[in-house]
Write a protein that binds this DNA or RNA. Structure first.
Lengths: 204, 204
DNA sequence: AAACCTATCCCTGAAAAACAGGATTTTTAT
DNA sequence: ATAAAAATCCTGTTTTTCAGGGATAGGTTT
C-alpha cells in the first residue's frame, strides 16, 4: 500500500523540489499539491491523502489554523509541518494544532522520507534541527501557561488590558494578573521590555 | 551559448525544485550548487558561472555580504537574490550589494527563466511581487532620526521616559515627544506594538 | 534675507499600566 | 482524594504613557 502524499506550499520551487525528491520512491503516491489553504480544503472534499506536508506561511490562512481545521474535519489525515523556520513557537503551535511532525525545508531526502513514513503510522517525527530546538527550549526556557501566551500575543499587538479582557471574556483585573506574571516570568520591567524579551525568546 | 547557472541555498528542497524547473531548459547549463557561503566561494575559485541564484538566509554568512564579496572578486558574475521574504529591506540591501535582480521563492518557472536571461545580459530583473514592494516602499518607508533611534533602543530596553531623559541629558517631556513621533512613524498604538513593529522592521 | 523644513526641545492633564497584597474557583496530576 | 498549579477576580496607590498643545536652533531653498 502506497502512502498518499499531498503538499500545501505557496512556493512553487519547494513543491517541485519535494516532488523531485519523492518521485523515485516506490512507497509514495503523489496525490497533488495546493498553493493556498482554500484549494487545499477544496481538494480534501474530493479525496483524502494519508499525509499532508503543510507549509506554515500560506497566503490566505496560516498553516497553523489550516492544520487545526483539517484535523477537525479529517482526523485520519496526518499532517507534517514544513517550514524554513526552526522557531520554537511555530513548532509548538503546529503540534498543538494536531500535527504529527515538523520538518525544516533544509531537510534531506532521508529525513523527509522518515517523516512521511513515521507520520503515516500515526507517530510523531521531528527533523534533527527541530528536535534540537525543542530540547533547548525545555532546559532553558520560561514556561508560560496557555492563558499567559494568549495575553502576551495580544499585548504585543498593542491592545490594552480592557480590550484584551473583552476579547478573552475575562475581567481586566485578570488580564492584569497575567500581565504581572508575564513580567515576573520573563524578568521584564515593563511592557516594552516584555515584548522585546518575548521576541528574543521567539515566544511571539 | 548556454547560460551557466549556479545556486546557493541552504534548503535542499529549493535546490531540487530549481533544478527540476530548469532541467528541461536548453539554454541553461546547471553548473552546481552550494548550501553555504564558504563552499560557494570555494566553487568560484575553480569556475565562474554566468548567473548565481543566491538565497539571502545562509547558515554561515548572510547572502547580502556574500553578494558583495562575490561581486568584488568576480564582477562579471551576475547575481539574482532569492528569498522567501518580500521585504523591502532585503531587496534594497541586495541591490546595494550589486545584485542584478530579486526573485521570490514562489516565482513561476517563467519568472525564473526571465530573471536568469535578463541577468545574463547584465540587466536587472524583479519578480512581480518584489517590484510591487519596491513601488509601495517609495511612498511609505520609515526614516527615523538619530535621536529617535536612540530613544527607540532605550524604550525597547525597558527604560522609562525619566531614565531615558537622564541618560540623554534631556527633559522627560522631550523623550516623550520622540516617543510620540515614533508611535506615529511606525503606526503603533502604544509601546507594546511599537517594540513589536520595530523588531519586525529590524530597527532594533 | 525671508521663508521653510526638520530635528530637537518643553509643558499639561487625562488615561493606562505597574505594583502591592490580597482571595476564590477550576484544572491537572499523582 | 487531594495537593499543586492555573485561572479567575478584587481594592487601592504610584508611576508611566498618551494626546493635546507650542517653542527654538540650524540648515536649505528661493
Amino acid at each position: 500500500m502506497k502512502i498518499k502524499v499531498f503538499i500545501v506550499d505557496d512556493h512553487y520551487m519547494v513543491i517541485e523540489g519535494i516532488r523531485s525528491l519523492l518521485q523515485n520512491e516506490r512507497s509514495i503516491e503523489w496525490t497533488g499539491h495546493a498553493t493556498n489553504a482554500a484549494s487545499c480544503l477544496a481538494f480534501l472534499r474530493q479525496e483524502q491523502p494519508d499525509v499532508i506536508l503543510m507549509d506554515i506561511n500560506l497566503p490566505d490562512i496560516n498553516g497553523i489554523d489550516l492544520c487545526k481545521e483539517v484535523k477537525q474535519k479529517y482526523p485520519s489525515v496526518f499532517i507534517i509541518g514544513l517550514s524554513t523556520f526552526n522557531q520554537l513557537s511555530f513548532i509548538q503551535k503546529m503540534m498543538d494544532s494536531g500535527a504529527s511532525g515538523y520538518v525544516l525545508k533544509n531537510a534531506s531526502q532521508e529525513e523527509l522520507m522518515e517523516a512521511i513514513e513515521t507520520a503515516a503510522k500515526g507517530k510523531t517525527y521531528f527533523s534533527d534541527e527541530a528536535s534540537k530546538t525543542l530540547q533547548k527550549s525545555e532546559s532553558a526556557s520560561v514556561i508560560l501557561t496557555r492563558r499567559e501566551k494568549e495575553v502576551l500575543e495580544l499585548i504585543a499587538e498593542g491592545l490594552t488590558n480592557n480590550v484584551i479582557a473583552q476579547k478573552l471574556f475575562i475581567s481586566p483585573a485578570t488580564v492584569d494578573t497575567h500581565r504581572k506574571n508575564l513580567l515576573a516570568k520573563l524578568e521584564a520591567k515593563n511592557t516594552a521590555s516584555l515584548v522585546r524579551i518575548a521576541t528574543q525568546l521567539q515566544l511571539i
